[in-house]
Design a binder for these strands. Structure first.
Length: 798
DNA sequence: AGCACGCCGACT
DNA sequence: GTCGGCGTGCTC
């Protein structure tokens, strides 16, 4: 029997199947979808077994060394999905499979030096290296000997030393130590001195079953030594139990019951329920106002799926995977829910993944990568806040969650629901064309009107002599809420802003020596940091260009706003939420809980407070700089601005108290800001579609972005020119090839970057052309440092 | 990606 | 003369 394997070597030349013999002892386990260890040249590496065949066309076929999984970790469906992902996003197949699995399943093969003879026979440096051991990791040897590593050559030739490849899995199953009483006929007698032992013994005996060692120690206040004595006396026994790491810390969650749907909700539910019942794949776009009860619909749709004994994937943007959100699903479905998001440790992710794989759960609530959940009988896939850009993965494989969901939805004959208050222009266009089924929720559940929105012209404020970051209107509104004991949310859009350091005398801006990007000032440590390569420098005292000491940091951060608030409203209690204050695990929830309990008057924050915030006392939302995002050179900037403003506005007046939103802007006339006043999504889409049509952007055109980078500037320029020419020759006349041009970030980690953009409508030869470029320039690249990245349907043009 | 093989410069 | 620099090509 021959196994065909994709090896874990992400390179153009190895992106194909390799044939291996399956020895009889592994035949029972060698199923497509298991991980294997195979000999590859002189080393041993990991691979994925893709298929089994009778014969190989290849002459010398080596046998597989090991099968790592007792059961396939990739189902036939996921194997096929990986193949599709690789072709549709132009990436290596291993990278696709790797992206579908938790990181913990990526086992590393480590190289080792093994001593075969009396160490005295070895050269001195090696004797010191081994110093009594028989095995030394290759990495360690290299580190210790550096260039002198060549001393191993002779002993290797003499076979005094050998090289072995050890597979170390970091698929660690967590185990907890438990103790229990060894049953005896009579109770043991403890001496007076062994008082503690007696107490511990009685405690353990008092428990119904075995108890975790940790809790014994905690409850009795005893030390390990006491427990050890009991163990040694043979009164108790210790054993290990496999446990799941519990990211939610087993909080007590009140079960929730389905709510009665409003008429509007019921109308939307009907086609969804039909698709579930009839097992029909259908892309559905649920356009529902904030507060129109989308989540309850999701919950009930999932219930319907579970009732059919099928499984559900619920996708939410990373940023809104808040404890509140998770709690809502756990409250309805209890233990049937697994959670997947980047905040979990590798071990926790692995445990959640195993729950799905072992069919112990039926629902997964998670961010982007949860779309690959190893379910085998999916009944529905829901993508909430479908317009969120975090659904697009920005590393290879550069997939969009929506596309993967559609692929899986088709295979499983399951409906895919895309939900949003402000759908992406692309999705809405598809819905209008009838490609997606459009479902609308135009009323809020409680019948409350959307908040009033007022746009404040900050240029006028400046003319009136107000140089503070709060307009007069906002200042008055905040004061008013403080008096009324109502709550205010202040939103600062940090995107497009950074706290850069500039010399006031000569205008020099401190920037990274390896990347063409300015340093970001970090108050903590008073240092400058490059966000691209991580380089850190102390904050300079004087300007390196002109020597002036008038060098300061600029930009408007939350910290600065906080200081300003303290100055203007000294009595106000402020909670600040940004990356700095929420870094610690659980801090996010803690801060929100405090605000919810009325422990603060003002919540000041960035993107992370734009979502899921639902507190009845918030009656004022202030947006400090509405247009900071509008000026980013990206065709989606207007769309993002509108979506974000609508999102933030939705935080105000969610209960009986009416909400007010104040939007401060330097370009108040722009339609993406004006139309928020009327909450007029339709009108916004009409305007935006017009501008997309004129500019030749999606959804009128598809786009592809090629980024070419190299350490040599001349080589990048030359290659990108050649590639552009080749694209123009190979693609149809209707395709528009732009570039080559310097990337918005011209250099990252000492690599110069050029880019080329393709706009097209129908280009059957596109993939063929891109593959040709990949093969030609990377396979025969004379300069191995050259890198080409391809992004089909890009979201960021950096 | 690694790792081996192989062909040219500065050293004992 | 050789050691070792890294360019080239292969891995079932």
């Amino acid at each position: 029997m021959i196994g065909r394997v994709i090896v874990d070597v992400p390179a153009a030349q190895t992106d194909r199947l390799f044939d291996y013999l399956i020895p009889t002892e592994w035949q029972a386990f060698a199923k497509p979808g298991v991980r294997v260890i195979v000999p590859f040249g002189p080393r041993r590496i990991q691979g994925f077994l893709i298929e089994l065949v009778e014969l190989s066309e290849f002459e010398k076929v080596k046998p597989i060394a090991e099968v790592l999984d007792p059961l396939p970790i990739l189902s036939p469906e996921l194997l096929e999905l990986g193949e599709w992902l690789a072709t549709s996003t132009v990436c290596y197949r291993v990278s696709a499979y790797q992206a579908m699995l938790p990181a913990a399943l990526k086992s590393k093969v480590s190289k080792q030096l093994v001593l075969q003879v009396d160490p005295a026979m070895l050269p001195l440096p090696l004797q010191t290296l081994f110093s009594g051991r028989t095995v030394v990791a290759w990495d360690e040897a290299k580190k210790a000997l550096k260039k002198a590593i060549t001393v191993v050559k002779e002993p290797l030739d003499q076979e005094w030393l050998s090289i072995s490849y050890e597979t170390k899995e970091h698929t660690r199953v967590k185990k907890v130590k438990y103790v229990e009483i060894i049953p005896t006929n009579e109770d043991p007698v403890f001496s007076k001195r062994a008082e503690k032992q007696e107490r511990v013994f009685t405690y353990i005996k008092g428990q119904e079953a075995s108890v975790p060692v940790n809790s014994v120690l905690k409850q009795t206040g005893a030390s390990r030594a006491t427990l050890k004595s009991l163990l040694d006396k043979g009164l108790i026994q210790e054993f290990e139990k496999e446990v799941y790491r519990d990211p939610l810390q087993a909080e007590d969650i009140q079960r929730s019951e389905p709510l009665v749907l409003t008429d509007a909700q019921a109308r939307v539910m009907e086609p969804v329920a039909k698709a579930i019942a009839e097992e029909q794949h259908q892309m559905m776009l649920l356009h529902g106002l904030t507060g129109s009860g989308k989540t309850e619909l999701y919950l009930q749709a999932i219930s319907a799926v579970l009732a059919k004994n099928q499984e559900a994937i619920m996708l939410v943007p990373e940023i809104s995977l808040t404890p509140q959100m998770v709690t809502r699903f756990k409250a309805r479905f209890g233990e049937l829910v697994a959670i997947m998001h980047s905040g979990l440790s590798n071990g926790e992710k692995y445990d959640e993944w195993r729950k799905i794989h072992r069919k112990e759960v039926k629902v997964v609530v998670g961010a982007r990568s949860a779309v690959f959940a190893p379910f085998t009988n999916i009944g529905i896939i829901i993508i909430d806040e479908e317009h969120e850009t975090s659904y697009k993965q920005e590393e290879t494989p550069r997939y969009h969650t929506r596309d993967v969901a559609q692929y899986r939805g088709e295979r499983h004959r399951a409906p895919v629901i895309l939900g949003s208050a402000t759908p992406s222009i692309e999705s809405y266009a598809r819905a209008k064309k009838g490609v997606y089924q459009l479902l609308s929720l135009t009323e809020r559940v409680n019948g409350r009107p959307l908040p009033d929105v007022e746009v404040v012209d900050m240029r006028q404020e400046l003319r009136n002599g107000n140089r503070s970051m709060f307009s007069l209107a906002l200042t008055e509104a905040i004061r008013d809420r403080l008096e009324k004991k109502q709550q205010t949310v202040l939103f600062l859009n940090r995107r497009g802003y950074s706290t850069f350091v500039m010399c006031r005398d000569c205008g020099y801006v401190a920037s990274c020596n390896h990347c063409d990007i300015s340093y970001t000032y970090h108050r903590k440590g008073n240092s400058l940091k490059c966000h691209y390569c991580g380089d850190e420098q102390p904050m300079p005292e004087t300007c390196s260009e002109c020597g002036s000491d008038h060098i300061r940091f600029f930009g408007s951060g939350t910290q600065k706003v906080e200081e300003e608030l303290a100055k203007q409203f000294p009595e106000a209690r402020v909670i600040r939420m940004d990356v700095d204050t929420t870094r610690k695990k659980g801090a996010h929830k803690q801060l929100l809980d405090a605000f919810g309990q009325g422990k603060a008057d003002i919540l000041l924050g960035t993107q992370m407070i734009a979502k899921g915030l639902d507190f009845p006392k918030i009656t004022l939302v202030g947006v400090l700089a509405a247009d900071s995002m509008l000026h980013i050179p990206d065709f989606r900037s207007a769309e993002r601005t509108f979506q974000l403003l609508e999102q933030v506005a939705g935080r105000a007046g969610r209960d009986v108290l009416h909400g007010e939103v104040l939007v401060q802007s330097y370009t108040p006339e722009h339609y993406s800001i004006q139309l928020v006043k009327e909450h007029d999504y339709e009108q916004f889409v009409a305007k935006e579609m017009q501008s997309r049509k004129i500019g030749g952007y999606p959804p009128y055109y598809f786009m592809a972005l090629l980024t070419i980078s190299d350490t040599e500037l001349a080589s990048v320029m030359q290659t990108s020119q050649k590639i552009t020419r080749f694209l123009k020759e190979s693609l149809s006349d209707k395709a528009i090839v732009l570039g080559p041009s310097v990337s918005p970030i011209a250099r990252i980690k000492d690599r110069y970057r050029y880019q080329c953009v393709i706009k097209y409508r129908q280009e059957p030869k596109l993939h063929e052309t891109l593959d040709a470029i990949m093969n030609h320039y990377l396979r025969d690249a004379t300069n191995k440092k050259l890198a080409i990245s391809m992004d089909l349907h890009p979201y960021f043009f950096m």
